[in-house]
C-alpha cells in the first residue's frame, strides 16, 4: 500500500506548506547579498511566491486541524520536530551556485508534484496548486538558466555548481517517497536535460538522507526558526 493513502489531507497541506515556508525564508536571506540587483530581486520574488503558497497551505492545514490555528500560528508557534518540510529546503544557502541548484531541484519537483495535486479531488488543494503552477514555471526557468550559465561558464563557476549538485543530491530521495516515487523518472529526465546543457550530469546514486517529513531535521532548521520566530517568541501573538 502506498504512503499517500495513509497521508491525511491535513498532513499533506502541512508538508507542502512547510516546504514553501522554509525555502521562502532561505531565499529571503539572500536579500541584499545576491551577486547583482536583478538576482536579488528575482530571489526575493521567488521567496514571496513561496510565502504566499505557504500561507494558503498552512491556513488550510489549520482549518482541517480545527484547533483554532491559522498560518501565522503554525509558522511561529511550532518547534522544529513539528515542522514537516523536506530536508532539501532547510539546507543553508552556501554560495550562489549551491542555492541555485537547491532551487532548481526543488522547483522541478514542485512542478511535477503540483501537476498531480491540481487533479486532486480536494478543491482547495487543487486551486492552490493550479495557482502556484503559473509561478513555479518561472522559478524552474530562472533556476535552470542559471545552472546552465554557471555550468557552462568558467572553471570556477562549474566547480561551484558541481559542489551544489553533490550537496543537494543527498536530499533528493526524500522528495520521492511513497506515491511520489512515480514522479522520479520525469524529474530525473528534466534535471538531466538541464545538467547536460550545462556540461554536467546526474551524480552517481548515494545513500539518501531523510527524516524531515517525520519531523527529524538537520541542525540548520533550529537556527532558521530562531531567527524566523524571534519576535513571536519574545512577544507571543503580537500584532501590528
Amino acid at each position: 500500500m502506498s504512503q499517500t493513502f495513509t497521508l491525511s489531507p491535513a498532513e499533506l497541506a502541512l508538508r507542502l506548506g512547510d516546504d514553501a515556508l522554509i525555502l521562502s525564508h532561505r531565499l529571503c536571506e539572500w536579500c541584499g547579498h545576491a551577486p547583482t540587483l536583478e538576482v536579488d530581486l528575482a530571489l526575493s520574488n521567488i521567496g514571496l511566491d513561496l510565502l504566499g503558497q505557504a500561507q494558503f497551505f498552512l491556513n488550510y492545514a489549520g482549518e482541517m486541524e480545527n484547533a483554532g490555528r491559522d498560518a501565522d500560528a503554525l509558522a511561529y508557534h511550532r518547534d522544529e520536530h513539528e515542522f514537516k518540510n523536506c530536508l532539501l529546503t532547510e539546507q543553508p544557502n552556501g554560495d550562489f551556485a549551491r542555492s541555485i541548484v537547491r532551487q532548481f531541484f526543488f522547483s522541478a519537483w514542485q512542478q511535477l508534484r503540483f501537476h498531480e495535486l491540481a487533479k486532486s479531488g480536494d478543491a482547495t488543494m487543487a486551486a492552490i496548486a493550479t495557482k502556484a503552477l503559473k509561478e513555479i514555471a518561472y522559478h524552474v526557468q530562472f533556476a535552470a538558466e542559471w545552472v546552465v550559465r554557471l555550468g557552462d561558464g568558467t572553471e570556477e563557476s562549474k566547480c561551484r555548481v558541481a559542489d551544489g549538485i553533490s550537496w543537494s543530491w543527498r536530499f533528493v530521495d526524500e522528495l520521492f517517497t511513497g506515491e511520489d516515487a512515480a514522479l522520479r523518472p520525469a524529474w530525473e529526465a528534466r534535471v538531466r536535460a538541464t545538467l547536460n546543457e550545462a556540461g554536467l550530469d546526474l551524480p552517481a546514486p548515494v545513500r539518501g538522507i531523510t527524516g524531515g517529513r517525520e519531523g527529524r531535521h538537520s541542525e540548520y532548521l533550529g537556527h532558521l526558526l530562531a531567527e524566523m520566530q524571534y519576535v513571536q517568541r519574545c512577544h507571543p501573538n503580537a500584532q501590528w
Binding site: 536583478e38 538576482v39 530581486l41 528575482a42 526575493s44 520574488n45 521567488i46 514571496l48 511566491d49 509561478e135 518561472y138 526557468q141 530562472f142
Partner: peptide
C-alpha cells in the same frame, strides 16, 4: 529581457 523579475512579482525588466 534583462531579468524575469522586476520591481513587483507581476513584472519583468
Amino acid at each position: 529581457e534583462i531579468s524575469r523579475y522586476g520591481s513587483t512579482p507581476c513584472k519583468a525588466l
